[in-house]
């Protein structure tokens, strides 16, 4: 909300976060704790009394209104790995995990050396390799 005050959107995002926490399976995890803390921190400017009461109920010494505002971390949204579909003659044989930043050449390299490809190609001749970056590698055999 640096320049544009879309409070209505902010409140609906708080509702989404609250719903996601309600539905979360990992209620005993550290990540869930962070989720609850984040919800209360973000709620604090909007519903200051309730946020303070609930924050206190978690046992914190300082006021919720003294907590630092969440800083958007773009790195947290970067996907490290993607699932690459391996096809032989157009037929999906399975997926392998590869680095998200891998280029076309690298993707073909990972695919060729994968156990999946080697099993389904065996000693047949590879006529052509079709690479769709971020999605799949298809081996056309002779």
């Amino acid at each position: 909300m640096a320049d544009d005050y879309q409070f209505n959107t902010a409140v609906s995002e708080l509702m989404k976060l609250s719903n996601a926490l309600t539905d979360a399976p990992c209620k005993n995890s550290a990540i869930y704790t962070e989720g609850i803390q984040t919800l209360l921190t973000l709620l604090a400017p909007f519903a200051p009394h309730m946020a303070e009461e609930l924050w206190q109920s978690l046992g914190y010494a300082d006021s919720v209104h003294h907590q630092p505002w969440c800083i958007f971390d773009p790195a947290a949204l970067v996907v490290d790995e993607i699932s690459l579909v391996i096809q032989v003659m157009g037929k999906t044989r399975g997926t392998i995990q590869v680095p998200a930043q891998a280029d076309k050449q690298a993707l073909e390299h990972y695919a060729r050396n994968s156990e999946l490809a080697q099993r389904h190609i065996a000693d047949k001749e590879i006529k052509k390799v079709i690479v769709v970056p971020g999605k799949l590698v298809n081996f056309v055999l002779g």
Partner: peptide, 15 residues
């Protein structure tokens, strides 16, 4: 909505 948040956090605090 605020009542839901209340339950969510009080449940969490209890455990």
């Amino acid at each position: 909505f605020l009542n839901r948040v209340w339950r969510l956090v009080t449940d969490f605090a209890e455990q």
